[in-house]
Simulated assay, not measured.
Amino acid sequence: MTAPLHLLLGDNDFLIERAVSQLTAEIGREGSEPVPVTRVRAGEVTAAELSELLSPSLFGDARVIVVEAAAEAGKEPAAVITSALHDIPDGITLVVAHTGGGRTKAMVGVLQKAGAQVVDCATPRWPSDRADFVRREFQATGVRVSRDVVELMLANVGSDLRELAAAVSQLVADTGGKVTEAAVQTYYSGRAEVKGFEIADKAVTGDRSGALEALAWAMHHGVPRVILADALAEAVHGIARVRGLGSINPQAAASELGMPPSRVKKLQSQATAWDTESIGAAAVVVAKLNGDVKGQAADADYSLEHAVSTVAGLRPRRGRG
């Protein structure tokens, strides 16, 4: 029997949508008819409307009520949600999507104490988090893959969870579950984000002209600016994280960072030329770029060129340790 209360905790639209779809399908399998799903935004629905939605039906028919953006809820809708938690009518499944922050941050704890089934819907923050996501996607299909396969998936497919999940499904289906590095290369070699990582690698190794030339090619061919910015940010953050571990065996660092040893070894090689001050400055540059390519700058192309050029120029000629 499906639990009547669910908390989708996080901000990733794909994970939230998938969780709702999976839950609805599960409830549908328990009955004989399709389950109606009603969606409301917590910041827009009134307390009266929400109360009506959460009121029992005459026959206790199965219904799914999804309260989206609960972090934005007004005082009255938030009160209706929390007051209904311990007496959800038969047939109703209440699903609350909450980022974990916002003005109703305390609601998360209330939902958890009320016994809500929690689904992690947070956007992976670090490369190691995305690697874990890919690994879990394969495991969900009963397939185990190597670290190198996971790294290739991230490098070739990108960081978008929807695309990564689709790629995992396709690879498992088309290879009969025998997913190898060669299979990933065959299906996804040459994808746009590879060019993004090439640009990033050139920038963090101080090859300004090479990085700008590769960037011009990528922009001319329509590679999304967000992908290029993410690649540069991951290269900078990777170097910072590796430097933070000091002199450590790549194999041991791989476990600590959640990266394949080959990736750690490459980052360690790049990190030798950087010092604390310069990598800190580069981190500030990529943080600003993240906002610029998402609409904060009037000219995203200029922001990208400036960031790539700046990061390349920040790399010291000699590592000072």
Score class of each variant (00 low, 15 high):
E49V: 09
L15Y: 14
G91N: 00
K294I: 06
D201G: 15
A69Q: 01
E30R: 05
R191K: 08
G115P: 04
P124G: 02
T180I: 11
K266W: 14
R41Q: 12
H6Y: 07
L53T: 10
P224S: 05
L304W: 05
E33R: 06
H86Y: 12
M219G: 06
V184C: 15
G280C: 03
P77H: 09
R103W: 08
I65H: 09
V35P: 02
A84E: 08
A155S: 05
R63F: 00
A211N: 03
G238R: 04
G10W: 10
L171P: 02
A78E: 11
S169Y: 02
V194N: 14
D148W: 09
D120N: 12
Y302W: 15
V118M: 12
A155G: 11
G74F: 01
P260L: 09
P316L: 06
G31H: 14
V284M: 15
T24M: 08
V242L: 13
L232A: 08
F197E: 11
I239G: 12
G210C: 10
G210W: 11
T46D: 01
L111F: 07
A182P: 11
L215Y: 02
D230N: 14
D13P: 14
P224D: 05
T93V: 14
Q185N: 15
P261L: 10
G280Y: 03
A297V: 06
D230R: 14
Q170T: 14
A122G: 06
A233L: 13
N249K: 13
D207Y: 00
K294V: 09
C121S: 13
G319D: 11
L154T: 07
L23S: 04
T186I: 14
P261A: 13
A70G: 05
K178C: 04
S189D: 05
Y188C: 02
L54G: 02
L54C: 07
I65R: 09
A47H: 09
A3H: 07
N290R: 10
A71L: 07
S21T: 14
K113Y: 03
A254I: 06
L164K: 05
A131Q: 02
A183E: 15
A70S: 10
G319N: 07
I279N: 03
R144P: 00
S309V: 02
A140Q: 13
L161T: 07
E26F: 04
D90P: 01
V236D: 01
Q170G: 03
A240M: 12
I227H: 15
A240I: 05
V204E: 04
I199Q: 11
E52W: 07
T104D: 04
G158F: 13
G280W: 04
H237E: 10
A116F: 13
R191I: 07
T82P: 03
S159V: 10
E30S: 08
W126Q: 06
A42W: 02
A235C: 06
A155D: 08
R136L: 01
K266A: 12
A48I: 13
R317N: 12
I92S: 00
M259Y: 12
L164Y: 14
S255D: 07
A42E: 02
G190N: 04
Q185G: 13
T104L: 06
I279T: 06
P316S: 05
H306L: 08
A97F: 15
N249L: 09
W274T: 01
R39T: 10
G291L: 06
